[in-house]
């Protein structure tokens, strides 16, 4: 290991003090290399999740059962592309390029949220994603609005506002189904049954197995542990499910008066690891579609670059 130069030591002290005082770190500030690379990894993975996350929902745009629902879904998928753009911009303030990050996504060197490797089999899945998947995302992301890195925190403020809107719309979609015909109600229940456990997995591995957690919390990138956030999410969802008139697929779900939290059953971590490794139902399909869109679009990007080069001077 190289020794830290005295001036670097001073810079590190300034950084530590700023984090301790809950000040924001900005792109031009000195930061430890580990902090920078952790953030690049996390923000990129977040951006990739927005982009891959468009697919399971876009799968239903052309089949949405009413024009109102179709408009809502299109707007949502559009917002996700927009969130991807904010997040790639936030990552770029750390000295990486969008192209570089997309390349890492396409080659499997960077990950995206494992939830998007599950298929959307019915229209009700669109509602379950809105309620549960976006709900879990919001639970994760609201604390990130206070993340120590300024550009990421500010991106999260914008993302969370739009995300909560989607979540309410997803919930309302499920409510309409739950209170609809028996076939619609069954469709809603089936979707919740399939999306509940994968949504709980979105908070990541249990605290004692989470590789990056301790350091991220010390740097105030993360504010709460995986298990803490997961518990918070379960506590929010149980009464919401009841209001929906739907059940959650967990026989161990029970109120614990001592902890004042809902107890819940064990998560199938083997499945989680399996999906993470690439063996989920849609891993191959998702990445292939993304790569194909990118490859098929190469000539368009080349044309735009060639045109800009030719007309650079009289662009104004």
């Amino acid at each position: 290991m190289t020794t830290i130069a005295p001036d670097e030591e001073a810079l590190a002290a300034v950084f530590e003090a700023a984090v301790a005082a809950d000040e924001r770190i900005e792109p031009r500030d000195w930061m430890p290399e580990g902090y920078r690379s952790s953030l690049v990894r996390q923000i990129a993975q977040h951006a990739h999740s927005e982009i891959i996350g468009m697919q399971p929902e876009a799968n239903w745009i052309t089949r949405a059962p009413s024009l109102r629902r179709k408009a809502i879904l299109m707007a949502k998928v559009q917002d996700e592309a927009g969130h991807g753009l904010y997040l790639y911009s936030a990552a770029e303030t750390l000295g990486v390029s969008r192209e570089e990050l997309l390349d890492k996504l396409h080659s499997g060197r960077q990950k995206y949220s494992s939830i998007f490797n599950y298929p959307t089999l019915t229209w009700a899945d669109v509602g379950a994603i809105g309620w549960l998947v976006d709900g879990a995302a919001i639970t994760n992301q609201v604390p990130l609005c206070r993340c120590s890195y300024g550009p990421y925190a500010r991106a999260m403020v914008r993302v969370c506002k739009e995300e909560s809107f989607h979540q309410r719309q997803g919930y309302e979609l499920l409510l309409a189904l739950s209170q609809g015909t028996p076939a619609q109600h069954a469709m809603a229940q089936d979707a919740v049954d399939r999306w509940w456990w994968p949504s709980l997995m979105m908070f990541g591995p249990p605290d004692d197995e989470s590789a990056h957690s301790a350091q991220s919390m010390a740097w105030k990138i993360k504010r709460h542990s995986n298990d803490e956030l997961r518990q918070r999410f379960v506590d929010i969802c149980v009464p919401q499910a009841e209001a929906l008139g739907l059940t959650l697929p967990d026989p161990d779900l029970a109120w614990d008066p001592e902890r004042e939290h809902w107890n819940f059953g064990p998560i199938d971590w083997d499945e989680f690891r399996d999906v993470l490794k690439g063996n989920g139902p849609c891993n191959g399909q998702r990445i292939t579609q993304r790569r194909t869109a990118h490859e098929n679009g190469a000539w368009v990007r080349e044309a735009a670059a060639a045109y800009a080069a030719k007309h650079g001077e009289d662009k104004r």
């Binding site: 468009m54 579609q289 869109a293 679009g297």
Partner: peptide, 9 residues
């Protein structure tokens, strides 16, 4: 949706 050549599109 999900197939465009660039995110902006």
């Amino acid at each position: 949706a999900g197939h465009a050549p660039v995110l902006e599109e």
